[in-house]
Design a protein around this nucleic acid. Structure first.
Lengths: 138, 138
DNA sequence: TCAAGTTGTAACCATATTTGTTACATCAAT
DNA sequence: ATTGATGTAACAAATATGGTTACAACTTGA
């Protein structure tokens, strides 16, 4: 399973985007997500490192570095899930076996296609879309 | 990361499909995959439970229950990765917060789309395709 | 300047998953 | 019956994850 950081990060960004004028402390965000503030700050740190948000040490509040419509769920995914390969592959298959010898490149190609399909789908949706769906739900 | 069982299971099935007349002991398969025979038998057990192969206790060899062209990589994926949700979601977001209240269903929808895209891509490729690519590599 | 509140981050723990391993009961085939 | 195989339980080591405490460094207002 892909970790909850992705879900939490989207939650956080939606929250920030929903109150652009307000400085939300990590405590408040943690209250909405229902977790520990340090977990929030940890994820905020990754989002900052990825260039999606800006924060100031000691000062409450994070702000998006670009409009919600220009932050895709794939951007968020990449920010908090730094692994570049979604599928793990077993090491050192037997090179003396025809199948063992070639399996790696075949798996790589198949897995890359699947991963790309997932990533393209995530790339299509933005934080703005998330916000709109949240508002429509009332 | 998605576990190596998927990669190993594809390796195993390609091996079986490549030598349909031969009864491969789990020891031999383990030699090609480069792991412990018990790991192989564990995965063979899952493939059997999923109805993809047939085995006989005490007797070497596993056989496919249907042609390699009718076994998709998604079938294999499902057999060895029984979780139905690819993305984890945090529990109990705050229902008194507008974002917390609605985030679950929005996340579910977005994640389901991404997961479906991945699964559809895996469903397009079969063990036969894998075999063909292995042979073309020479 | 100082006090209060906040971020950033290290450190640690409990838990879960994964992979490898040993052991052994059970079955097949000669 | 003996040999060799499968099926499976049980355990260990490594890793990832999420929660928690602690604390240094920073910001702001009084």
């Amino acid at each position: 399973m892909i970790n909850t950081r992705v879900a939490v990060a989207i939650h956080i960004l939606a929250l920030i985007a929903s109150k652009p004028q307000t400085d939300l402390p990590s405590d408040y965000i943690a209250g909405s997500v229902n977790t520990n503030p340090v977990v929030i700050r940890r994820i905020l740190g990754m989002l900052k490192k990825a260039g999606l948000i800006q924060t100031t040490a000691g000062k409450a509040g994070a702000s998006l570095t670009r409009p919600p419509a220009e932050i895709s769920l794939f951007d968020v995914y990449q920010a908090v899930e730094p692994k570049d390969h979604l599928f793990a592959v077993h090491d050192n298959p037997n090179p003396h076996c025809p199948v063992g010898k070639g399996i790696r490149s075949v798996l790589d190609e198949a897995f890359n296609e699947a991963q790309s399909a997932l990533e393209r789908t995530l790339a299509k949706e933005t934080i703005e879309d998330v916000l709109h769906r949240l508002l429509l739900e009332r």
